[in-house]
């Protein structure tokens, strides 16, 4: 099972994402943003970091990278895509996910272990979890506040597009405590917290993040 991880100029967590894929039992494939080549991968991870230095808006310039045109086209046909932190910002900027991420309401970078509630356990990236499960994975962002108009938020909630929600405190002022959302078909998922940093007892607060990467392996087999 080949899981592509795209590196943009300024990506930071691509190596951790590759490690998480390997620990889950998949084969990580390094992809470069400037090449129109998805190398026949079965799914794609957009990692965290500060692509293009967060210039213009976080994720805005990376969302227009050559390889992202291929990702958008294939995602609309069902290719599973996971955006973590900066990757989530890229997916919103690319129009694959609703809403936008902007400056934290308190203006501070926030870095801590975060409790999340899983609300959708039927997406390509969350089937290893149970609906209502509490998981603990790190969150670290300065522009992680999920925002949209009230009408859009009502639509996102009404369509059941919220995948994970912040519990026991909202780290960045995100509207309605939303930490992650999915596409209409449940194949594209974006979230601000970092499941790839919670895959081993030695380095993470838990191994709760591994489920994102084991889920997609099942989704690819069943596709």
């Amino acid at each position: 099972m080949r899981i592509g991880i795209i590196t943009f100029p300024g990506s930071l967590d691509d190596v951790d994402a590759a490690r998480a894929v390997r620990l889950a039992g998949g084969e990580p494939v390094a992809l470069w943003h400037a090449e129109h080549d998805l190398q026949d991968v079965d799914a794609v991870v957009l990692p965290g970091g500060f692509s293009y230095g967060d210039y213009l808006r976080a994720g805005a310039i990376a969302a227009r990278a050559p390889l992202m045109q291929d990702v958008v086209e294939r995602a609309r046909q069902g290719l599973p895509v996971l955006g973590i932190c900066n990757g989530f910002q890229v997916l919103c900027e690319a129009g694959l996910l609703p809403g936008a991420l902007t400056r934290n309401s308190h203006l501070h970078f926030r870095n801590r272990d975060q409790v999340l509630g899983v609300e959708r356990a039927d997406t390509a990236w969350t089937s290893s979890y149970a609906t209502g499960q509490r998981i603990v994975i790190p969150v670290k962002n300065g522009e992680g506040r999920f925002v949209a108009s009230d009408g859009d938020l009502d639509r996102i909630e009404g369509e059941g597009r919220v995948v994970v929600r912040y519990l026991d405190g909202n780290p960045n002022g995100s509207s309605r405590d939303i930490a992650g959302v999915t596409s209409e078909n449940g194949r594209v998922v974006g979230l601000m917290p970092h499941p790839e940093h919670a895959v081993e007892d030695l380095t993470g607060p838990s191994t709760d993040g591994l489920g994102f990467f084991t889920s997609v392996l099942k989704a690819v087999v069943n596709a």
Binding site: T102, R103, N104, S105, H106, L107, S149, D150, G173
Partner: peptide, 13 residues
């Protein structure tokens, strides 16, 4: 500029 319904913490600072 941010839409009126989107809060602007930088402006508030």
């Amino acid at each position: 500029v941010l839409k009126p319904e989107i809060s602007d913490p930088q402006g508030q600072a």
